[in-house]
Simulated assay, not measured.
Amino acid sequence: MEQLIARIRGMALSPAQEWQTIAREPIELVPVFTRYVMPLAAIPAIAGFLLLAMVGLFFTGLSSMIVGYILSVVGVFVMAKIVEILAPKFGGPQDADAALKLAVFSPTVAWVAGAAIIIPILGGIVALVGGLYALYTLYLGVPIVMRVPQEKALTFTLAVIGVAIVVNIAVRLLTGVFI
Rank of each mutant, 00 (worst) to 15 (best):
M146K: 03
L71K: 02
I117L: 08
F59R: 10
V78M: 04
D97W: 04
V104Q: 03
K81G: 01
L86E: 09
G124P: 07
V171E: 02
S63M: 15
A134D: 05
L51P: 07
V73M: 06
I66W: 08
L140I: 13
P120K: 11
T155E: 09
T108R: 09
S106W: 04
L138Q: 08
V55L: 11
I70F: 11
L57N: 14
L174Q: 06
K89Y: 03
V129Y: 08
V148T: 04
P149E: 12
A110E: 12
I118W: 08
V67P: 02
A134W: 00
M79P: 02
A159V: 02
V55P: 03
I161T: 06
A153M: 10
V171M: 09
V78Y: 02
V160E: 00
L140W: 10
G130H: 07
I161R: 01
V73H: 06
A116L: 08
G123E: 11
I144F: 07
G123Q: 10
V126E: 06
L71C: 02
W111N: 09
V142F: 03
F59C: 06
M146H: 01
S72H: 08
L57F: 13
I144Q: 06
Q150A: 14
V55H: 12
A87T: 01
K152G: 05
I117F: 04
I119F: 11
P88N: 13
T60L: 14
A127G: 01
Y136F: 13
V167M: 10
I125Y: 10
T60F: 13
V145D: 07
A98C: 11
P120W: 11
E84N: 12
Y133E: 04
V167R: 05
P93Y: 11
F59P: 03
V167I: 15
